[in-house]
Every structure is written in structure tokens, then in C-alpha cells.
Measured scan of single mutants.
Amino acid sequence: MQIFVKTLTGKTITLEVEPSDTIENVKAKIQDKEGIPPDQQRLIFNGKQLEDGRTLSDYNIQKDSTLHLVLR
């Protein structure tokens, strides 16, 4: 499925993911596309910070959902 990740600069990254993917996996995909190390990434969905060990389906993230990427 496709999800979107919006950065603070207003750029939107499109990712191909599975609901069973962990947040860690998603961060690795963002690193592949953008070169941002996962330990600098914080992903936010519906105002909640997403934890590495959880999956997209844990957070009820579905296709065409938009996550927000904050760098630390």
C-alpha cells in the first residue's frame, strides 16, 4: 500500500509499505529515499509519536495515510 510522509519543509515522500511493516522498517525506507538516519527521525500520526517496535496496523495506518516526519 502507499503512504505519504510529510516533512517540515513541506516536501511529501511517497512510500510503498505493508500494514505489517514496523515503524523501524518505515524509517529505513525514508533513509533509503532521503538519506536521513533513522535515529534522527520521529514519525507522528494523528498527533501520536510512533514507536519503532510497533507496526503500521497497530496504529491503524491505512493506505494513503499521511505521517509527519520531525527531525531531532
Rank of each mutant, 00 (worst) to 15 (best):
K29Y: 09
V5P: 00
Q41I: 06
P19Y: 05
T66E: 04
S20Y: 10
V5D: 00
T9N: 03
T9K: 07
L15G: 00
S65Q: 14
E24R: 12
Y59Q: 02
V26W: 01
L15A: 06
I3L: 13
K48A: 09
T22I: 12
V5H: 00
N60V: 07
R72Q: 09
D21E: 15
N25W: 06
I13N: 08
N25I: 15
E16M: 14
T9F: 02
V5N: 00
L69T: 01
M1N: 10
L56K: 00
D21M: 12
D32K: 05
S20V: 05
D39P: 05
D58E: 13
P37Y: 03
Q2K: 06
P38S: 14
L50I: 13
L43N: 00
F4I: 11
T14Q: 08
E34N: 13
I44W: 13
T55G: 04
T14F: 10
E51W: 10
D64R: 02
Y59T: 09
K63T: 03
L43T: 01
D39H: 09
G47Q: 13
Y59L: 11
I3W: 00
N46S: 11
D39V: 08
I3A: 01
K48T: 05
Q40N: 08
D32G: 05
P37G: 04
R72P: 12
T14S: 09
V17M: 11
D21F: 12
A28G: 10
F45Q: 09
E51S: 02
F4L: 04
T12E: 10
T7R: 13
K29P: 00
M1D: 08
D52H: 09
N25M: 14
V17R: 01
D32M: 12
G35E: 02
P38H: 08
V70M: 09
Q40W: 04
S65I: 03
E24I: 07
Y59I: 09
T14N: 07
I44F: 06
I44K: 13
A28K: 11
E34G: 07
A28F: 13
K63Q: 11
S65W: 11
E16F: 11
S20D: 09
E34V: 15
T22F: 10
V5W: 01
